[in-house]
Every structure is written in C-alpha cells, then in structure tokens.
C-alpha cells in the first residue's frame, strides 16, 4: 500500500480507512453479479407468473374446445358451461381504443405545450399537476366515473344507463393521460436543442419546428408513451368495473354496457371454486390478457425498430 496509493500522500491509512477501501474494491468487483442477480429476479418473477397463469388456464380444455373460447356467450354456471370470451375481448379492445383516441392527442398536445411553449413557472405547475393526476388511486377515478361521468353520459346521449363503454373510455383516458403526457414530455425534452436552433435558424416558425422537427425526432419516445398508455388502459380493473356496467352481452357499441377481461376476472374470481372449469376459464381470461399485452409490446418494438431503420 505504502508509496503508491493516493491515500498515503498525507498519512498512512487508518484501519478504518483500509477497511473502507477494501469494501469499495469489493463492491466494484461485485457490481456486475449483483446487478445481474437483481435483473434476474424480475425476469424470473415474470416467468413464474406467466407459467403459473398458463398452467392454471390450460385445464379448461378438458371441458371446452379451444375454438369455443372465442364464442359469443359467457355463461359460466349454466349446464354445460359456455366460456365464450369474445364479448370481453371486444369490450377490452373497444374501451382501450376509445381511451387512446382521447388520451394520445391530448397527452401529446399537453406534452408539446409543457416542453415547447409554456413559460418555466407554468411548466412546473403543469408538470406537478400531471403527476398528481397519476397519483390518484383508480378506485377514486371509478367513484368519480360512477357518480359524475356516467350520469352525465346518460343525460347527454339520452340513454337508459350511462354505465357503458363510453364512460369507461372517458375515465380510462383520464387515467392514461398523465402516463402518456409525462412520458411524451420526457421524449420531447430529450430532443437536442441544436435541432430546434437549426430549424429556427433556417426560418421555420416555432409551430413548424415543433410539429415538423421536434415531434418526428422524438417519435420513438412518443410511440413508447402511447404504448405504455395503452398498457394502463388495457390492464385497469377497478375503475372500469365501476363504470362500464359489466354486461356480458356481445356489443360493438360504445353506448351499451360492456364487461372487459379485467372486470370479468374481478367479478367472478371470488365465486369460482378453485379447480373448477370456471376457475380455469378465468385463468384463461388472464392468459388472454397477458397475450394481448405481449402482442402489443412486441408489435410496438417491431414497429419502432422499422421506423428507426427507415430514419437512418
């Protein structure tokens, strides 16, 4: 040690210092295995969940054929039971689509405002408000939807009930908005300043710069924001359970009550005796949800890769 360490310039290292140095060196050596192990934990957890859901879902084929899972009727307790998940798949797609149609333009626009236009004071206020919106528990959104949004939708469209796909979409849009907006804002802020300066120097207006230069450069991040917003909408359970009406009938209309996959599982899990056909059928709904999540994420990655290659 003596003579070659920086520590020795002034005085010989005390015992404590030497210990600390040894510890630091140990930590430096261990960082890779530690991070590897931690990374592995999340991977293994994901794998275990996936295997468990699929293992509990497969036995449903002892009772019904695979193709009947896409049937139009869900009558889990009739004899023989019908496990047609199509109404719930359609409902999940419907309310997610509705939520994204509202949340993406709004989210991108508010991100554009916060990142490009707003003065600093307003920017901080807007950002913290968005974060506050993300911190509200979903059951509170559900309560708001049940007591405010649904009656409003009912009166506006003169419907028998306001608990329908539209109300669910509105609430989900509100819930996905902070995710989309704050991630989109990050993506826009990450665009190098020189791009903007170059564009402005070429005589482009601020609007043209934002719309033609900043947004396209941030495309990949914006796309990620949209996909995560979609994940939020697909997986949300409590709020949808409270405002969507939960009718298991097949419908393509936003103005009819719908039951999503998540709400279906939440509504019926408690009554399904474990090990029964109904129980396995509910796990099959869970597996379908997982598949939808994997498919959208995969599709998003593929699409993003394609766009990135085209950009080069």
């Amino acid at each position: 040690m003596n003579g070659n360490g920086e520590m020795d310039v002034t005085r010989a290292p005390s015992l404590a210092n030497r210990r600390r140095l040894a510890l630091r060196r140990f930590a430096q050596k261990m960082d890779r295995p530690v991070f590897f192990a931690l990374g592995l934990v999340s991977l293994v957890t994901l794998g275990v969940i996936f295997v468990f859901v699929v293992r509990e879902a497969i036995p449903v084929f002892r009772y019904v054929s695979p193709s009947s899972l896409l049937g139009p009727a869900w009558h889990p307790t009739s004899e023989p039971p019908l496990f047609g998940a199509l109404p719930m798949i359609v409902a999940t797609g419907l309310v997610t689509l509705g939520a994204l149609v509202l949340a993406i333009p709004l989210g991108f626009a508010s991100a554009g405002f916060v990142a490009e236009i707003a003065p600093p004071a307003l920017r901080d206020l807007a950002k913290s408000l968005l974060e506050l919106l993300a911190a509200i528990p979903s059951v509170v959104y559900g309560f708001f939807g049940l007591t405010v949004v649904a009656p409003l939708v009912q009166r506006t469209f003169n419907l028998p009930t306001g608990q329908n796909g539209l109300s669910a979409s509105l609430i989900l849009a509100l819930m996905a908005l902070p995710t989309v907006a704050s991630l989109a804002e990050d993506a826009l802020t990450a665009v190098p300043k020189v791009h903007r300066e170059a564009s402005l120097a070429l005589g482009a207006s601020r609007w043209q710069t934002t719309w033609r230069v900043v947004f396209p450069s941030a495309f990949s991040g914006l796309f990620g924001a949209a996909v995560l917003g979609m994940g939020r909408a697909v997986g949300e359970t409590m709020a949808v359970l409270m405002v969507a009406g939960n009718s298991p009938a097949l419908t393509w209309s936003f103005l009819r009550p719908v039951r999503t996959l998540t709400a279906g599982i939440a509504l019926e899990m408690a009554e399904a005796p474990s090990g029964s056909a109904h129980y396995h059928a509910l796990f099959m709904l869970g597996a379908i949800l997982l598949l939808i999540a994997l498919a959208t994420n995969g599709l998003a990655e593929w699409f993003r890769g394609r766009v990135a290659r085209q950009g080069e």
Binding site: L146, Q163, G245, L267
Partner: peptide
C-alpha cells in the same frame, strides 16, 4: 339476462339505481 348491469357491491347497486 346478459343485458343487465352487474355491480360489485351493495353500495354501487344503490348508487346506480338512485342515479338511473
């Protein structure tokens, strides 16, 4: 019937009927 609304609690049921 499949066309019914399904509520997950007595409270949600009461709120729904009172507002519909």
């Amino acid at each position: 019937t499949d066309g019914a609304l399904f509520q997950s609690s007595n409270g949600a049921m009461a709120t729904t009927v009172a507002s519909t």
